[in-house]
């Protein structure tokens, strides 16, 4: 049973590619919002157990983090978190609103801005998943959490969670500033199974050349975008 909860290497790579396309899409949305070029990438995707995900997020010592979370439901359910160290989240917000504001003033609107940035990024990831799965994902409004990784996980992941955690780092580049954070997808059991099925279908689609389209390898990107 347990090995079924883990995506294999090919599946993880496929999800990584999918999410890279998704965050690129949110980069476009963010760029349009702030009128500046925003670049984003998801270099690594891993399946991690809860404790290891927690350790990675905290970077070796408990520090103050900011997370934006959304719950999603439907054939594919679970929750999604975008996590930044608090200090870096201020940098991110400053990069978004520009240097014309002092850090003090930025701190006052940081939660609001972070919520919105998280909303944009997480929605991109979720809609990418939904597109690939060919289903609808209903998502709640984003909520903002602050605290240590442990505190945030306790509020967003059920103790009885028996699903898997899809864990990825995300790198931003705005106004020549680089900001690094993490995206955490906590998938329920049904989500993993559905994801595997969808990935199998996606892989099969890659194998069969589509009629009238010789460049079949682009199929993944098209499907995601």
């Amino acid at each position: 049973m347990s090995e079924e909860l883990v995506l294999d290497e090919f599946e993880t790579d496929a999800v990584g590619e999918l999410l890279n396309v998704a965050v690129s899409r949110s980069a476009v949305a963010l760029s349009r919002m702030i009128g500046q070029t925003v670049a984003m990438s998801v270099p690594v995707v891993r399946m991690l157990p809860r404790d290891e995900a927690l350790r990675t997020i905290e970077g070796g010592r408990p520090s103050s983090l900011i997370a934006v979370g959304e719950q999603f439901s439907g054939p594919f359910s679970g929750s999604a978190l975008l996590v930044f160290p608090e200090l870096r989240s201020l940098r991110l917000v400053q990069a978004i609103v520009g240097d014309g504001m002092s850090l003090e003033d930025i701190a006052e609107l940081a939660e609001e801005a972070m919520t919105e940035v998280g909303n944009i990024i997480l929605n991109s990831c979720l809609s990418g998943m939904a597109n690939m799965l060919g289903c609808r994902i209903e998502a709640t409004l984003p909520s903002c959490y602050q605290g240590t990784g442990e505190q945030i996980f306790r509020r967003t992941i059920r103790d009885s969670h028996d699903g898997s955690i899809l864990f990825m780092s995300i790198d931003f580049s705005i106004r020549n500033r680089d900001v690094g954070g993490y995206i955490v997808l906590i998938l329920d059991l049904n989500a993993i199974n559905n994801l595997r099925e969808a990935l199998a279908g996606y892989a099969a689609g890659l194998m069969e050349p589509k009629p009238g389209n010789g460049n079949a390898n682009n199929g993944g990107v098209n499907a995601a975008g």
């Binding site: 978004i96 919520t115 919105e116 909303n119 939904a130 597109n131 609808r136």
Partner: peptide, 26 residues
């Protein structure tokens, strides 16, 4: 059309996603 609202409406209709758009950054 320049801002986030149009995309958010599209996402809500097409996928079922919700969006929060604040005055402080838009």
């Amino acid at each position: 059309a320049q801002g986030r609202l149009a995309g958010a409406v599209e996402d809500a209709i097409a996928t079922g996603l919700s969006a929060y758009i604040s005055n402080s950054v838009n």
